[in-house]
Design a protein around this nucleic acid. Structure first.
Length: 660
DNA sequence: TCACGGAATATTTTT
DNA sequence: TATTCCGTGA
């Protein structure tokens, strides 16, 4: 790119300045393009960072550089895709430089929105003590409303609550009407449009009435705050003079607009991303954000990071071929200095079972040769693709962790306990009331509703339950005692948690045959509570910044955590790397999935997903696909390798292996 | 009105 | 795997 030449000449004065008295030797730690990206601090900057090109490293050093330059940490804002990412970068910057880096405002768009809204919400007529609905809460609420629309939802063809939540969220994140989403993505529900729209309206109203914001609302409200209230916009945007955004390819239009407003006063904004790795369009991410960035911010400098530090040349040869087929992208030319002569391999197996056998045998083999288990990963398109493999791994006693999929806080027993706390925090929280009431035997939806209404009639907050005039309801006494106990003694968060868990234990034992495992989770939860002084803070964090990984399951004390191999969806593998990577189910119809075959955009996204998967590997890369798989939904027999790998020449992808 | 059992169903996921 | 949904009987 011709602009890059210009960049180089411009940067020289800055680069010279570094040498004098800065503590960190930036020019030694970084390659020339990375150094460019770090030292170019003024004005809009777009960094296209290819896979494995040291993106995180660059961001981290840039944070340190800004601080070392004397910029106040409080005026630096670092927005990332996950909370963990920003924490990690700030932690490393702190190690390189000093504790000033800890003062930098960092987090996700959602946590930033939360912070700003708590501060300024009242000015836009929003209760600053608003509660946050996580995805499950939103689904439950939608489920309640769905049921209230009884007659129409009786048909089997009516979308389930999860699907409804999906539709609603997609509409927000893509900035489209419900109707458009149905048209585009769910044409088979077209006949239910009217009812779906009604449920959606009710959903919005309920949230407002109860002062609840769901994840999408956080962004919507922040955007409104910034667009409609000039004085607040002014205040916020003069506070953050240097803004950095990671994973820009996975931001959606609302987030791009938020950034636009945030830079109203000062336009020192840097975004980093790789359009080739954009894999969240189903959630509203718009990879064109990255392509349009220079149009929105005139004078944008573009820096491309093209040296890959991760993979050996044969792997890069393959990934370059894969991504070459993408229609719309910034051109970049990744290169590596890592040589090697092991070509990526495509393995055809007879069926799913022999696919699992191949992977297991290969893992045992590698492990014997000295590759640590935690340097081996198996990646797949969808969470359930690993079920069969998990069985085989268990049988062979190979320790693994599965990433992605279910979260700690989303599991039913954790939500049960949290619901009790939420009722205390917000007595009008109908969802939580229902949840805890339904746990009691002989109480179903109807009874729960009666109790809820009677309790709220007392107008005395959650203690309304104690004085509510109710006919005798069996089993409610224990709950009443609990509420009374919580009311009488002032407690900190963890004491409250323990009291609730004491109450909840019998219910847990009754409801789940695997209660010992779940009880362990609850202990873990207490541990987390101990870090909090404030109930609301705790509940907010549980929604916005939940403890991340789906922890060690029951094998807590089995193999040491360090020596386990990794099973992961490709989405959850973003940004990670391993010595050896297996991508299973690279079968046309599974990857890309049959759902996407007739949608061009989605096929493009699947292609990028394959690219992300392949670029995780450092030394070894295997693709496997079983033959003769019957697809129930379409009636097709699937037996071709993924179209993204099918026509690649043999000298790049070795293809004639068979395993049975 | 509730509990229970069996069947159906499932892309992907962070917030 | 694990939830969710629906029908049935009490």
């Amino acid at each position: 790119m011709s602009s890059q030449r210009r960049n180089k000449t411009q940067i020289q004065p800055g680069a010279a300045k570094i040498k004098k008295d800065f503590r960190i030797r930036y020019e030694e730690a970084l390659n020339p393009s990375q150094l460019d990206a770090v030292t170019c601090t003024e004005g809009p900057l777009l960094v296209i960072a290819g896979a494995g090109s040291g993106k995180t490293r660059t961001l981290t050093y840039r944070v340190a550089y800004l601080v070392e330059k004397g910029i106040s940490p409080a005026s630096i804002l670092l927005l990332t895709f996950t909370r963990k990412a920003s924490q990690e970068m700030l932690r490393r910057a702190t190690r390189f430089l000093d504790a000033r880096c800890e003062k930098i405002a960092g987090g996700t768009f959602h946590s930033f929105a939360n912070a700003m809204l708590r501060k300024y919400a009242s000015q836009m007529g929003l209760d600053p003590a608003f509660g946050i609905l996580d995805r499950t809460d939103a689904e439950n609420l939608i489920g309640m409303l769905r049921k209230e629309m009884h007659p129409a939802t009786k048909h089997r063809s009516f979308p389930r609550r999860k699907t409804l939540a999906d539709i609603f969220s997609r509409a927000v994140n893509k900035g489209l009407a419900i109707e458009d989403i149905i048209d585009q993505d769910y044409p088979h529900f077209a006949s239910h449009l009217a009812v779906i729209t009604r449920i959606h309206n009710d959903f919005q109203v309920r949230k407002q009435d109860h002062h609840f914001l769901d994840y999408d609302d956080l962004l919507i409200y922040l955007r409104r705050l910034l667009s409609d209230y000039a004085d607040i916009r002014n205040r916020i945007s003069s506070m953050y003079q240097y803004i950095m955004v990671d994973e820009y390819q996975d931001t959606n239009t609302i987030q791009a607009e938020i950034l636009y407003f945030l830079t109203d006063v000062v336009k020192n904004i840097m975004v980093v991303g790789d359009d080739s790795q954009s894999i969240y369009a189903f959630r509203g991410a718009n990879f064109r954000n990255i392509i349009e960035f220079p149009n929105i911010f005139p004078g944008t400098r573009i820096i491309t990071l093209e040296e890959n530090y991760r993979s050996i040349q044969p792997i890069l040869d393959l990934t370059n071929v894969i991504i070459d087929r993408a229609k719309e992208k910034y051109s970049k030319n990744l290169f590596t200095r890592k040589t090697g002569d092991t070509r990526p391999v495509m393995v055809n197996s007879e069926d799913e079972y022999s696919q699992s056998r191949f992977v297991v045998d290969k893992i045992k083999d590698l492990h014997r040769k000295g590759v640590a288990l935690n340097q081996i990963a198996v990646l797949f398109r969808a969470s359930f693709h690993s079920f069969d493999l998990e069985i085989e791994l268990n049988r062979e006693g190979i320790a693994f962790v599965k990433m992605g999929g279910f979260k700690f806080v989303e599991s039913a027993h954790i939500k049960d306990v949290l619901a009790h706390m939420r009722v205390i925090a917000n007595p009008y929280d109908r969802i939580s009331w229902y949840r805890i009431l339904l746990l009691i035997e002989k109480i179903g939806p109807k009874t729960a509703q009666k109790i809820y209404e009677a309790a709220l009639n007392e107008k005395s907050g959650y203690t309304g339950l104690l004085s509510a005039k109710l006919g005798p309801v069996k089993g409610l006494d224990r709950l009443k005692n609990l509420i009374a106990a919580l009311d009488i003694h002032p407690m900190n968060v963890s004491q409250m948690g323990e009291t609730i868990i004491d109450y909840y234990m019998p219910i847990l034992k009754n409801n789940y045959d695997d209660h010992p495992r779940r009880a362990k989770d609850l202990e873990h939860l207490i541990g987390i509570m101990e870090r909090y002084k404030n109930l609301n803070q705790f509940l907010t964090d549980m929604a916005l910044e939940p403890p991340n990984t789906s922890f060690e399951n029951s094998l807590y004390d089995g193999a040491s955590h360090a020596d386990r191999m990794i099973l992961s969806t490709i989405h959850s593998a973003k940004g990670l790397e391993w010595h050896t990577v297996f991508v299973i189910w690279t079968l046309d119809g599974r990857f890309p999935s049959v759902h996407t075959l007739h949608k061009e955009d989605e096929l493009e996204e699947e292609l990028r997903l394959m690219y992300v998967a392949a670029t995780r590997a450092k030394e070894n890369l295997f693709f496997t696909y079983p033959s003769n798989v019957y697809d129930r939904s379409t009636g097709l027999i699937l037996n071709r390798p993924s179209r993204y790998l099918d026509l690649i020449p043999d000298h790049i992808l070795e293809k004639d292996f068979e395993y049975r």
